[in-house]
Amino acid sequence: MLTLDVLTIPTDDYVGFTFFTGYMAMMAASVFFFFERGRVDGKWKTSLLVSGLITFIAAVHYYYMRDYYLSTGENPTALRYIDWTLTVPLMCVEFYLLTVVAGAKRSLMWKLIFASVWMLVFGYIGEAFNPEGGSTSHSVTYGILSTLGYIYILYAAWFGEVAQLAKNSESEVVRKGVKTLAWFVLVGWAIYPIGYMCMPGGWLNTAFGWGSENVDLFYNIADAINKIGFGLVVYNIAITESAKVKAPAA
């Protein structure tokens, strides 16, 4: 009986609909990446494993989030941030794995992981622990701190260590792939501060009266595009580079 209640989605509930499709898409992508891992050259196997892990972790969280949403009708903020705190650093690991052939040091990976965790932890404190009615100083402080982490990753991907290593890479596919991932960071990740803008006093809240309930639709779509898209870019690099390795032997 309980299961029946949980699975009922009104036809006009787009948020509930995207929680289901998001869950299925993430799970399907995980299966795809795990199976395709066997087809790529050894040095790309870890990259595909990480891609699969990102979508798999997200799928598990989406499984819980859709139930949480359907039974309470509320925005599952805590579950989302737990998901992001695990998956976003893994996306940063992908940058490292793609550029390791061009000489990336492990310190780059740790710097990116640190910046992503910094961004998410301060974002979570800013969004989840905002006092009733909204505190300006709280939002501003944690908003700025979180933004610092994002700016660092954006800089690294477009101009910093990641971009320089990709530039030095001998592979055109890797260069283009890292550039595409940098676009994901610039455009795709820019969706995430929407939650912040919907808090009391935020511009979406002031201009359109949007609250936290409005952000789920954006988050679900953005999550699917970013995580699966990110993985597919990595997959494309891995499969193209593996084909190059196999070609001379054939």
């Binding site: 300006t136 939002s139 908003g143």
Partner: peptide
């Protein structure tokens, strides 16, 4: 993306963080 646009994005985000709290 050129560096000018990067500075624009960074400034935009910091200002948004500033204005997001009302």
């Amino acid at each position: 993306m050129n560096k000018t646009f990067f500075i624009f994005i960074a400034s935009l985000l910091f200002l948004m963080a500033l204005f997001s709290g009302g």
